[in-house]
Write a protein that binds this DNA or RNA. Structure first.
Length: 283
DNA sequence: ACTAGGTCCTGGTTGC
DNA sequence: TGCAACCAGGACCTAG
């Protein structure tokens, strides 16, 4: 599942190829994949002729591809989305939802089997968060100074929700998804089900550090390979092969050999080592 | 104000 | 073997 490291990898890869390319044609093969503007004919018409600028930004799991005309092509990959750099004569894969044809013989394909992902074309002069409303609700970036152990202490105060669920809340901190949440909790030796407000300050300082560590490693390794995740060229990342707990139910913990367990939390699976991640009741 | 749970969607996996 | 049921989950919505 694309999370912050996957989106950041995609941003960096596209930055080496896309700027300066002009859109010659746009085909929307699945209307639900476009969020704005609607109808899709308008989306296609407005994107046609635009040139990608040399500034791409990322906010949480949102990717913002700036255009020379001042607009922005915003992307959220959600569960299964991919943006792929293709040659013009490349065959059209099964799940291409939006096809952006560029001059000079290249294309950008938005593939998304589960159709949860979205593209938005933010017009010049409008604030991105006025179109992509999810942007307005995002908490701080994990690598920003605002995000710290003290910040977690403050935000977790009185919070009875399991710490794992709190980490997935994009209003708390932007960009963490199920994989990196599980990995960060293992790294900081915190039980995913423990109520967030119950954690000691020392735990939260460790958790903050662990979040940064797993995200940095994810970026260094060019993203996870879970299921069919690939980069813009269709090449797999290699994070999941080295996961501590994610997707390893029943397998031995890499530290103590205890079998990794999986529980359901708010409809999502949480993986943890019952020996390494003790429920700590200091508060 | 918080929190849990349902919803969307479809390919892959599991189980009978 | 074949087919149906289940599973994956990010963001948004609703309900309690």
């Amino acid at each position: 599942m694309p999370e912050l490291p996957e989106v950041e990898t995609l941003r960096r890869d596209l930055l080496t190829r896309l700027p300066g390319h002009r859109v010659s044609d746009v085909q929307v093969l699945r209307a639900e994949s476009v969020g704005y503007p609607l109808p899709i004919e308008l989306f296609c018409a407005r994107l046609r002729g635009q040139v990608f600028a040399a500034e791409f930004t990322r906010r949480g799991k949102y990717l913002l591809l700036h255009l020379e005309g001042g607009g922005i092509l915003a992307v959220h990959l959600r569960m299964s989305g991919r943006l792929l750099w293709k040659d013009h004569d490349a065959p059209l894969e099964n799940h291409v939802r939006v096809r952006i044809v560029l001059e000079d013989g290249y294309e950008l394909h938005f593939e998304d089997p589960r159709v949860f992902g979205r593209l938005w074309l933010v017009p010049d002069g409008l604030a991105p968060e006025s179109i992509v409303t999810g942007l307005a609700r995002l908490g701080p970036e994990p690598f920003a100074c605002e995000f710290s152990g003290a910040y977690l202490t403050h935000r977790f105060e009185q919070r009875r929700q399991p710490v794992k669920s709190a980490l997935l809340d994009q209003q708390l901190v932007a960009g963490i998804g199920n994989i990196y949440a599980d990995e960060a909790l293992f790294t900081s030796r915190i039980h995913p089900c423990q109520p967030a407000g119950q954690l000691a300050e020392a735990d939260l300082i460790r958790l903050h550090g662990a979040v940064l560590t797993v995200l940095e490693q994810g970026i260094d390794r060019r993203g996870s390979t879970l299921r069919n995740y690939t980069d813009a060229l269709g090449v797999n990342g290699n994070y999941a092969g080295t996961a501590w707990v994610y997707g390893r139910r029943g397998q031995p913990c890499r530290i103590c050999n205890t079998a990794i367990e999986r529980v359901r939390l708010a409809g999502r699976s949480a993986h943890f080592c019952p020996a390494c991640q003790k429920w700590d009741r200091r508060n």
